[in-house]
Design a protein around this nucleic acid. Structure first.
Lengths: 341, 341
DNA sequence: CTGAAAGCGCTTACAG
DNA sequence: CTGAAAGCGCTTACAG
């Protein structure tokens, strides 16, 4: 099976390889009729440019890297899918690279990926986007990168994020509007910068409503189902039991919900439960969990857009490369009127 | 930032580029002292081979493709992670390519990936591994590929699978051993060949135990949580209610479990529920769901091993490239003694 | 065991 | 608007 090359196309169209290259890459300065002749030859021969030859001679690889902590999570799946489809639409490919910060050789692995793959850009997912040692690797390699939901906006990176604090405030207001006053909060892990933003939103809304935060009812979790169950057990055995529990992600909310069931508490009649993220687990429950829809796939797609925008390399600080995407509160069955005494 | 090339290493080590190439690729016929000198130069210069130059001059890309229907599912996440880590260990990279059979241009997309990326091999996940039109694309392109959990073993492909039928039989026997006789079964979608195998295992075990299968209690689902809930509702409203429900994947089992709770049935006291796959949803429930552990990550890793084995290209029919990986029955809280009259 | 030459299939930089 | 030459950084095929 002989491979069709740019020479074959050039010969058939009666032009030079350089002209074929121009047509393929959509450059200007080609007469319309020549362009058409080339396009016809491309179609007839079913020609496909060799990505490696192209990468070797130009400085581009048409490859984007997605650097992510835990590629198995539901969060990662959504992010990846959003990035993948947008890459495809832009004729790029996506390489997923797990960042194993727990392994001593993680820097070496990342540097290997960056330099041998000649990535054109990188998307860095939370929480590792907040790891300065990691981000420095990209800065040092002069590799354009976009941070997803970072704690701060850097001028050397693009950023794509949602307003975690405002979303958490809205969720808290939703619970307050149902008459809840004693609202518990399950914090995320400190390693995720979003945890602090969500907690701040919760506290801001409580303060604005004049509702006191019971510090015994603010518990640390680690975004896992299990930690949600543990927090639920402790919260529900509190002398002054909360009438609503706001867990700062869905997996933990599901844990709280299951615990409530084990304790024989009706949701939402005796306890309201809310989550954050709108992952599959918030829908795979009964009742389904009221949550915040985080635009994960859209954020990843936007990151691809930024990385493939030729202007990005020149002025990364431009506000148009620091996006804030809208979230939404999704009301479902797990929250309702406070019927407590 | 100047890039270190093979020439720089050669100059430093006082040898020719070809010798450096030999050392890097682990070829024979290099004197130990020369080898060491080269390795020293590589380390000192922090040299990393340019993957594109290598791919262009050799016929290899060091790139494997994972072709998968729904890259967002929990199943996909496990598969991907298993493949990713093994690729990394073998100095390969993984490109995930969604197969969107519903889009008319899907063939074109796949062919584009195959030819422009010059993939060294492909892993084809279920259920699309059972789509002949898809597999033909790889056969036609002479691209080595491994099918995951296909309905049949082809001599032109490697295969990695588990024994779905036997696993389903074991699960059914587990329920029978608890004294259940009236066992309902929730089938998977016909598009997944595993559905039929799991159902066959269920029926074989029932027959072997002399337990009649009530055909009204065999319902079709589509592997989603929702279809599990629907099946659960119908099964629990049956005049002759089953004492156990075996759903052929975990998402559906979770749907059944939630439905049982809504109906006020205690699990496992009044109803045993079992699933299949050991995905996150089987653990994120209360009680946790008894299930079959499908070695998803191991299967994907084994597929990478096959594709990177030089012998595979020569004799794909060899039994060593058709693997059957062991499964395990995971007993958890959702199944128990039949306490029905 | 080691190396010089040629080439993989494109694009860059320069002419015209 | 179009093309001839050179080169990207490796490996293949061949000598010696």
């Amino acid at each position: 099976m002989k491979v069709v090359t740019i020479k074959d196309v050039a010969a058939r169209a009666g032009v030079s390889p350089k002209t074929v290259s121009r047509v393929i890459n959509g450059e200007d300065h080609v007469r319309a009729e020549v362009r058409e002749a080339v396009q016809r030859a491309v179609a007839e021969l079913d020609y496909r440019p060799n990505a490696f030859a192209r990468s070797l001679s130009s400085s581009r690889s048409y490859l984007l890297g997605l650097f992510i902590d835990d590629p198995v999570s539901g969060y990662a799946a959504d992010v990846q899918h959003g990035a993948l489809l947008r890459c495809r639409a832009r004729s790029y490919h996506l390489v997923v690279e797990p960042v194993e910060l727990s392994r001593p050789e993680w820097r070496e692995q990342i540097r290997g990926s960056i330099s041998s793959l000649k990535l054109d850009g990188a998307i860095i997912a939370p929480p590792v986007c907040d790891e300065p040692a990691l981000v420095d690797l990209f800065v040092g390699a002069a590799l354009p990168h976009v941070l997803m939901a970072p704690s701060v906006e850097a001028m050397t990176s693009g950023t794509v994020r949602m307003d975690d604090e405002r979303a958490a405030r809205e969720m808290t207001e939703h619970l307050l509007a149902f008459g809840h006053r004693h609202i518990a909060f399950v914090q995320g892990p400190v390693s995720h910068s979003a945890s602090a933003r969500r907690e701040a939103g919760f506290r801001a809304a409580m303060a604005a409503a004049g509702a006191a935060v019971d510090e015994r009812a603010v518990l640390r979790g680690d975004f896992t189902f299990r930690s949600g169950m543990e927090a639920g057990e402790r919260l529900l055995s509190l002398k002054k039991r909360p009438t609503a529990i706001f867990a700062s992600n869905d997996d933990m909310a599901l844990g709280v919900l299951i615990t409530a069931m084990k304790c024989g508490l009706a949701v939402p009649e005796q306890l309201s439960v809310s989550g954050f993220d709108d992952t599959a687990s918030s829908r795979a429950a009964w009742p389904q969990i009221t949550t915040i829809r985080q635009p994960k796939a859209e954020m990843a797609a936007a990151a691809v857009d930024i990385l493939t925008d030729p202007r990005f390399r020149r002025q990364m600080g431009d506000p148009e490369f620091h996006l804030l995407l809208p979230h939404a509160l999704i009301r479902r069955g797990s929250t309702g009127l406070c019927l407590a005494a």
